[in-house]
Design a protein around this nucleic acid. Structure first.
Lengths: 117, 117
DNA sequence: GGAAGTAGGCACGTAAAGGTAACTACCCTT
DNA sequence: AAGGGTAGTTACCTTTACGTGCCTACTTCC
């Protein structure tokens, strides 16, 4: 998706920032559960690899969507949470969660194309 | 993202359905502008290819998120719009649009990582 | 000692997403 | 004839995302 989209289109920018699934899932968990340590966050996002989690967290931090608090301890303890900016997404994330449950009970995810992926 | 995520997690399912950027962008346009013909939709989503648009529309239709109305004319005229289920996303999409504008004015998309992509 | 915890990093390979080009089949206009 | 429109389709290639395995460095516990 690196093409001729005018950089002036904020919708494109936010979608590129938030997409795909892993990124949004991380944000959803942080919103749902509150600030989390790296390891706890990893366990709360089933299936994500350390590699991807690290990368996404770094990206989100760079965009000011999440904060990162690191203790000067051994072992290290790094906590992540939604910033004020990230809080803008609170309603979106909660709605997505509700919609997800509704659609599941409606069978939207059983068409075969999604489940087969 | 085809791994050990339990299929019972609706949040994962919806994120997989809606992601990535193209899919959400299409939905956002449909929500913003209303039902659109294929060609008009393609022009309203700058940069998208026919190939990707076709694929996404098919997927969204299969999931019951959008409807497809085809005329029996030559040339064909196919219109797409949000279903009732798709309407569930109306608030989410509108919020995303507002947030996108806010974040742009805040400089969230100028960190270099997003713009450099 | 090994195993567990903390938060990662690197390298390699595979899978998925998407760009590009050419095409279909019909109609209308210049 | 060429060029435009309608909504796609196919094939090939490139780019991006991500899984996997191994690793770091420190501490604590069995």
């Amino acid at each position: 998706m690196k093409q001729k989209i005018p950089p002036a289109c904020p919708m494109d920018s936010i979608l590129r920032l938030l997409m795909g699934p892993w990124t949004t899932y991380i944000l959803w968990v942080l919103n749902d559960v509150g600030p989390q340590r790296f390891g706890a966050l990893k366990r709360a996002v089933p299936g994500i690899s350390t590699r991807v989690l690290t990368e996404r967290l770094r990206m989100l931090q760079a965009a000011g969507v999440i904060w990162r608090d690191q203790t000067q301890t051994i072992p290290p303890a790094v906590t992540y949470g939604l910033t004020e900016r990230g809080d803008d997404l609170r309603q979106v994330l909660e709605s997505l969660g509700e919609i997800a449950q509704r659609w599941q009970s409606e069978g939207a995810f059983e068409t075969g194309n999604v489940a087969a992926e």
